[in-house]
Design a protein around this nucleic acid. Structure first.
Length: 809
RNA sequence: GCCGGUGUGUUGAAAUUGGUAGACGAGGUGGAUUCAAAAUCCAUUGCCAGCGAUGGCGUGCGGGUUCGAGUCCCGCCACCGGCACCA
């Protein structure tokens, strides 16, 4: 019989599904293992070959865990709210809900076709009102705990999506989704106070088993820096608070800079205190018109304008210094104002050179500060021209001056973060409605929890509007409501939640997906939390991964989630690139469709190839040819089964190779080195072909192979009569690894002379060093290099080699 | 600029963490089978010299440590990714 994957695979998929072999058990007393992959966005294009890489990897890991006796939760769902669906709906005049249903159906079919061991009874769909009821519920809790607030501020606005974006969604000044330019727009938005969790998001990273690059990227994004706030006095009487990481350089502050949006500037302009008001207002306008992109591109050349008529007083020496306005100072970081120390900060130095400000050295130890700023922040710098700080090094001076500022009531130690609050409103239709109502009398009021879910109404047009209003705002019947507080007329919030809302807690819902009393039961949460192993894309590191850690910490604080952190372990896969090494895209025409590969070679071959393609963490280039190699391997396994002897005993000749392979595959799965695990199985099959193969040998091989290629393993397992029931998952344990079986009686050692390979010798495995050296010296090839020489030293590396050091006699 | 990663045959990549570089796969070449092709099987395949046994060279570049370096140390180069006027 030929290996007929086309009939084998659907057969087993149907049987597995019917018998629910991959269902996780709630209320079990077995140890649990929760393996998670990022749920897909069900796009219209269907699955592409990028999806199966992380899915197959976790499928292998969880199948192995099942064999090790764990009660495994390996769920899947759909992150289905979002712009592409909405845009497709607009173009084709179909309801987004209909588009979503169709796409989910297609995705489900494709995922099942690949034989993943998902628990299909636990599928979640973020657009299902039974699900987003709880997304809205979490929002209400955030609001009640003061972590959701509405604020008017300059926000990122995507000119093409016609929608605001979170900081995390702006990449190099353009929209991460569509690549259109992002401009600043003043808008009233719902915000989530993720900044309140900045320190904990940073600290708790320490104890997590996340790959290092994820930790580093999150740390950078949170961007903690320590320093001090210092209060300067304006000549007009107001306090100007600045943030600095170098309070030690306070004596060198020769001017100040405010961001163009700073509130004091507006006040001074209104009070007519600025002599050059026209020039200042011009500058403010110019700065506001710049997009993020321009602002960073123009970073080479500093711009600014001096405020004439107003100055600042340096509190440490009472000197009056000029104040400038410049957009190199950001309104959204620190206090939006800085003290400028051109001698010891490159940006200040550059600005000072252009605007002719004084440069005063206060830290010695560098080159001439008139030529370049000296920025070392360690003991190499010693304070000068700094009154009571003179003679201290920088490390000593920072606490000294901070203490002095605190004594004088002029400042205090301060920590700042780059992380900003999360802009949470979107002016689009296909998202969760925000359950808030605005009343003229009572202000913003939360909807009662009993009124959830607040359903997304049907609208005639989903088109986004140029005025920045959500399509929902046109639905007057829906918008007009009554105030939950006073009962008077009120209006609903018409913006919706961002794409990231539903995915911020979905892993909790999987634990108890049909619960209508709570987002999940306490028992389920306690049993399954935390996620033991979460694999996902690096592109989510400062988006979904950070947001969901934040939500989870909040849920922990209010007693819903039982653990501080949602995920114990995080790994990440590399991208699959098209042939030619470029990113797969429709326009390049290099997209590989998993459907085609399954049709031609079968799901098992696709799974195997995608794991064999290279290092799991590294990007890999697709090769149609190399897929064949994996198909050939499965053909060989199939033929082995037809040719194997009836003995259930494992053959002596294969014992060592087999047991080495058992260990190698188990270790490699744990380390995500799937490529070398497969290589080891390929080598083993070569051995079995050469030495002959018994049923016992094949039985062990099939167990090792089953997480990778479950269909063929199951088929052969049954064909050989190893069990009547189905499902490796349920009953088959991982084979015992017996180290003694890998030991050979005779071993071959490499022989080096002076570090160069010259030959090899076979000796008994337990031979002592003298015997080994004697055998090596007796070898004919070796003697050519040692005859007439004196043996100075010999090094024996057990089981590997012997190195003979010789010199002329 | 800062942070992280990578650099090995024709090619995707391995290398027990300092111990025989190139496992395993693809591709190539030669052969078997076939009317022929596909599929399959066998042999061979880092580079240079040699008919050959064999010898020399070889992990981005230059140094170093070591009996021994792809692996460790110092100094560079190239490419990829993230952050970026964050005071």
């Amino acid at each position: 019989m030929k290996y007929d994957f086309a009939s084998i695979e659907p057969k087993w998929q149907a049987r597995w599904e019917q018998a629910k072999v991959y269902a996780a058990q709630n209320g079990s007393d077995r140890p649990k293992f929760y393996g998670l992959v990022e749920f897909p966005y069900p796009s219209g294009q269907g699955l592409h070959v990028g999806h199966p890489r992380p899915y197959t990897a976790m499928d292998i890991v969880t199948r192995k865990k099942r064999m090790d006796g764990y009660n495994v939760l390996f769920p899947i769902g759909f992150d289905a709210f979002g712009l592409p669906t909405e845009n497709y709906a607009i173009q084709n005049h179909v309801h987004p809900a209909q588009v979503t249903r169709d796409n989910i159906r297609n995705f489900t079919r494709q995922l099942k076709m690949l034989g993943f061991g998902f628990d299909w009874d636990r599928v979640v769909d973020t657009t299902d009102p039974k699900y987003y009821k709880w997304t809205q519920w979490i929002f209400l809790q955030l609001y009640k705990h003061g972590l959701a607030y509405k604020a008017t501020m300059p926000v990122n606005w995507c000119t093409s999506c016609k929608c605001v974006l979170a900081n995390e969604e702006v990449v190099e000044g353009v929209c991460e989704r569509c690549g259109s330019p992002v401009i600043r727009k003043e808008k009233s938005q719902w915000m989530l106070k993720i900044t309140q969790y900045a320190q904990r998001l940073l600290d708790d990273l320490e104890e997590l088993d996340f790959i290092e690059r994820v930790k580093v990227q999150q740390r950078n994004w949170i961007g903690r820096s320590t320093g001090a706030e210092v209060t300067f006095r304006a000549t007009t009487g107001e306090d100007i608070v600045v943030f600095t990481t170098r309070p030690d350089t306070l004596f060198g502050a020769t001017y100040m800079v405010l961001s163009p949006e700073h509130a004091l500037v507006r006040r001074w302009l209104e009070g007519g205190l600025i002599a050059n008001a026209g020039a200042v207002e011009d500058y403010q306008r110019q700065a506001a018109a710049k997009s993020d992109l321009e602002r960073t591109e123009l970073s080479k050349e500093k711009t600014g304008v001096r405020l004439e008529g107003v100055g600042g007083i340096n509190p440490v020496n009472g000197k009056e210094i000029p104040i400038f306005l410049s957009d190199y100072v950001l309104a959204t970081y620190g206090t939006g104002a800085i003290m400028a120390v051109p001698a010891h900060d490159e940006r200040d130095w550059e600005f000072a050179k252009k605007f002719g400000c004084e440069i005063v050295e206060v830290v010695s130890g560098g080159e001439d500060v008139q030529k370049a700023a000296f920025t070392a922040k360690d003991e190499t710098g010693v304070l000068v021209n700094s009154g009571f700080l003179n003679g201290l090094n920088v490390r000593q001076a920072i606490p000294a001056v901070t203490a002095w500022l605190e004594e004088q009531g002029l400042g205090k130690a301060k920590v700042n973060y780059k992380l900003r609050d999360w802009v949470f409103s979107r002016q689009r239709y296909w998202g969760e409605p925000i359950p808030m109502v605005h009343c003229q009398q009572c202000g913003w009021q939360p909807l009662g929890e009993e009124q959830l879910p607040l359903l997304l109404p049907d609208v005639e047009s989903y088109e986004p509007t140029d005025d920045g209003e959500s399509p929902l705002s046109k639905m007057t019947d829906w918008v007009n409501t009554t105030c939950p507080c006073c009962g008077g007329a009120a209006r609903r919030e018409t913006d919706t939640m961002p794409q990231w809302a539903g995915s911020s807690w979905y892993f909790l819902r999987y634990m108890d997906p049909h619960n209508d009393q709570a987002l999940a039961s306490r028992e389920a949460l306690e049993y399954w939390s935390p996620v033991d192993w979460y694999n996902g894309g690096m592109e989510h590191t400062t988006l979904h991964l950070l947001y969901s850690r934040f939500w989870h910490k909040f849920l922990y604080d209010i007693g819903v989630a039982p653990t501080k952190e949602p995920y114990q372990k995080r790994t990440s896969h590399g991208m699959i690139l098209g042939e030619g090494g470029e990113k797969m895209s429709k326009s390049r025409g290099n997209v590989v469709n998993p459907n085609d590969i399954v049709a031609r070679y079968g799901a098992d071959t696709l799974r195997l190839y995608i794991m064999f393609i290279g290092d799991f963490e590294q990007a890999a280039v697709w090769s149609d040819n190399a897929v064949k190699g994996c198909k050939r391997f499965l053909d060989k396994v199939w033929n082995l089964a037809e040719a194997c002897s009836d003995s259930l005993e494992q053959m002596q000749a294969n014992a060592a190779a087999l047991h080495r392979c058992i260990k190698k595959v188990a270790d490699d799965i744990e380390a995500m080195k799937f490529n070398t695990a497969i290589a080891a199985m390929m080598s083993l099959v070569g051995e079995l072909q050469k030495n002959g193969c018994s049923k016992g040998d094949l039985k062990a091989l099939l167990v090792l192979l089953s997480p990778f290629a479950p269909h063929i393993a199951e088929e052969l397992w049954e064909a050989l009569g190893f069990h009547a029931q189905l499902g490796f998952a349920c009953q088959q344990g991982w084979p015992e690894y017996d180290e003694r079986k890998t030991a050979a009686s005779e071993i071959t050692l490499a022989v080096q002379v002076g570090g160069k390979l010259r030959g090899s010798v076979s000796v008994a495995a337990d031979a002592d060093n003298e015997t080994i050296v004697a055998a090596a010296l007796a070898d004919e090839k070796v003697r050519r290099f040692t005859d007439g020489m004196e043996l100075v030293k010999s090094i024996v590396v057990p089981g590997r080699l012997v190195n003979l050091i010789v010199k002329p006699r």
